[in-house]
Design a protein around this nucleic acid. Sequence first.
DNA 1: GTCTATAATGAGATAGAC
DNA 2: GTCTATCTCATTATAGAC
Lengths: 218, 218
Amino acid sequence: MQLTTRDRLLDAAEELFATHGYDGASLRDIAGVAKVPFGLATYYFGTKEELFRQVVARRADEHIGEMTAALDATVTHAAPGPPAIEELVRAFFAPMVEKLSQRGPGWRNYMQLLARAANIKQEQAFLKPFQQLYDPVRVRFVDIAATIYPLAPREHVLWASHFLNAAIIQFIAGEGSIDRLSGGHCRANDLDGIMRTMVPYFSGGFRALLESATQGEN
Amino acid sequence: MQLTTRDRLLDAAEELFATHGYDGASLRDIAGVAKVPFGLATYYFGTKEELFRQVVARRADEHIGEMTAALDATVTHAAPGPPAIEELVRAFFAPMVEKLSQRGPGWRNYMQLLARAANIKQEQAFLKPFQQLYDPVRVRFVDIAATIYPLAPREHVLWASHFLNAAIIQFIAGEGSIDRLSGGHCRANDLDGIMRTMVPYFSGGFRALLESATQGEN
DNA sequence: GTCTATAATGAGATAGAC
DNA sequence: GTCTATCTCATTATAGAC
């Protein structure tokens, strides 16, 4: 099956935005990787910003939908009680890790682009709506976690959830550094190893911070 | 006291590299922020890459030295036994958090630049030595953690340490997102709040993953 | 409708003025 | 020794050829 020129450009842009960042990837490079004459990029997308937007739009809905469904599933499975923290943590990580390692280079690139774009400050205002796309699913996570630890102060639930999110974001963005540091003993694309360590680790974090329920605010 | 032109350029570069990234910050913008005529950047530093290198070099040694000293101190204080995991985690976080919130905008910018530069892939080979500057102190952390959990497989100690590092990196880089998500209840520059939550959280993660010592490799 | 050649801007680096 | 005006190249966007 033959990919359309448009899709080839989107794939190439996804790859180069992920590896070189928005500013580091030029339309020329993108067209080169897509093996498409330079100039078609602006023909199809008008501006570089719009190309970026469409790269994101192509996958964001599916990704966010999967994450939300996975979180909701933990609630329905455990009803009427709250889910175990392990199940919630697993539901948060699994869709990301799976896309990172089992859904081909496109999704992998998208995940890295996502991780990169998570830390943008004032510049590039066109990225802001994209950042905020993911806020609802993150809030959903916090809300479910709060039902597991109803006595814990919400600030602590928020911090605990933030650390979880920070770790997965950086795990994706900083891929390769674990391989280097471990001398090859750990591999960032070892799906099973990641889940077997991340889930107990972060569940343990939640327990340690939030189970001492009444320590309150002071 | 009057800052030299050179230092003004370094400060401005530090700020713009941190906020806009390497590619996103132009020498013109940097000179503008420094209120210095454009062209002096290349006069003092030759190339943009060299300017970046000197921005890093100005602080890296001090930062890495402080981190190493803090880690080593936990060992000497606890000798002959290993330190408590809480003390080790605190020693890892404290110098970063302190620089982020109490040492002025220069250090703050440097920390964000550092967090950004942690996830670079093939491009920009001149950044690689900088990334690897921090490898020894990360290895030192792993080695100390391994003395606390001598029965745990080293792979698990590496993963646990990696998550810790990932979380602090992304916490720094993604600053502000906790503020937005929490509706202002949590603030990323709340030093005490951060340490009071991060330390038990990540210590709990280490305990949960590594204390079930004999689960082995399978 | 697809694509190509060109324009216009902004980048980093340099040679030469004060 | 400091700084400025200029050069060359790469970037995005466009106007016009197939």
